[in-house]
Design a binder for these strands. Structure first.
Lengths: 223, 223
DNA sequence: CTACCATTCAAACGTTCGTTTGATTTCCTC
DNA sequence: GAGGAAATCAAACGAACGTTTGAATGGTAG
């Protein structure tokens, strides 16, 4: 075998995935046509169906490429944390959950930033099949973190914890997804200072305080 | 003029708006066709273009019908609060913001529940025109609440407050929108106990704690 | 060189989309 | 009851959609 320029084994696949990530983020799934997508990727119109089978299968592949490693990281972070100390604090658990997500934001050159915004938007995706798909990918990490938080907050009623985790995921999802609202409130351009480290501190502080909020008597009564 | 059965002045308009509210929530804007929509509303295919002009104008009308009164209520609640006491607490301000939103959730018979879920999903709507539309409708209330929170939390750096408000809106939006995630975490069916009063307590406690979270030194330094 | 498999390509497939048309019906006014 | 605007209707419009096809192209192994 002679030396030759290194051609990635599936360059066309990668180009399609990258273009899909960006266009899905900008225009949504239904709003992105195969013609626009393949044109942006610089591949033939038929390439998507050849390499992925269908548009829906492409959507799945876009998520799987980023989400599977991220959720594996989340579980690994929690494993590490629980190996280091018997009773990690809620704040440490939150940080373990957030870090792999924000790592994508920092990873700008690989287009991870596009994906985090796409992901945040997909938590409230209208298409039920897409939502179920995401749910399946998240389920294992979700259960692990729920169990960890139950151990860290033994005094909290289960109902209340479920809701507070719900609030927590909402905050994270929205933070990753929305840029417009911050501009709306502040007139600032959040892109200028999208420092993942600083954002992690801000998010962790906010969420840890929320998770540890004092229980109101009316909530205790209902629990 | 003789007595006759009371026929609403714009029954067709209302039927279209109600059907659109539900179908947009279920399938998104692009995923809802005019044929499906008009069939559900029991009106002719051409009725939407006759009464509203276009599909996009219908989307705008769907939001305006609920959003304008809600944001007026939000400003009114804040006016009332500030009239009652010179320095309302952050918690009271949050409650004033949340209440008009949750009132829609309770207002089940008028389809408000559909709308809250639609609204939550639209915060991260891919279509830029829709997002700008929502932003314009929200802007006045947003500015009022930002000013109120700045007065209530004078010691907080502006940057930090902007982000915490951002987190807050994310939590609210996601709470109204998502039902799947709670099921995913808990295996519970949140619909069974969607008590707006209880939810208001839970949300307020969580958000007030988050807004009042202690400032980390790293954040102070960056501010 | 030849045969072969994977990939790319231009073209067309049938379907569905949002919108428009022009006739018809409904309902109120005079 | 006649006139006329408002509303509804069936039908069709051109455009864009996701997907399929069958031929052309590329590189690799025998």
């Amino acid at each position: 075998m002679t030396l030759r320029a290194v051609k990635p084994q599936h360059e066309t696949r990668t180009r399609i995935l990258d273009a899909a990530e960006e266009l899905f983020m900008q225009h949504g799934f239904e709003g992105t046509s195969m013609r626009l997508l393949t044109a942006k990727a610089g591949v033939n119109l038929a390439a998507v169906n050849y390499h992925f089978g269908s548009k829906h299968a492409l959507v799945e592949a876009v998520f799987r490429r980023r989400l599977d490693p991220m959720n594996i990281s989340r579980i690994a972070e929690l494993d590490k944390l629980e190996a280091e100390q018997r009773s990690p604090t809620p704040e440490a658990i939150i940080r373990a959950f957030i870090t792999p997500g924000l790592r994508l934001v920092e990873d700008a050159k690989s287009g991870g930033r596009n994906f985090t915004r796409l992901l945040g938007r997909t938590y409230s995706e209208p298409n039920k099949a897409v939502r179920q798909l995401i749910g399946q990918m998240y389920a294992p990490a979700m259960q692990r973190y729920k169990a960890a938080l139950e151990r860290a907050l033994p005094q909290m009623p289960r109902d209340e914890l479920v809701w507070r985790m719900h609030f927590m995921f909402g905050t994270i999802a929205y933070t990753l997804a929305a840029t417009d609202t911050v501009q709306l409130i502040a007139g600032c351009k959040p892109e200028d200072r999208y420092d993942a480290g600083l954002l992690e501190e801000r998010l962790t502080a906010f969420l840890a305080a929320g998770l540890n909020a004092p229980l109101k008597s009316s909530i205790k009564k209902a629990a």
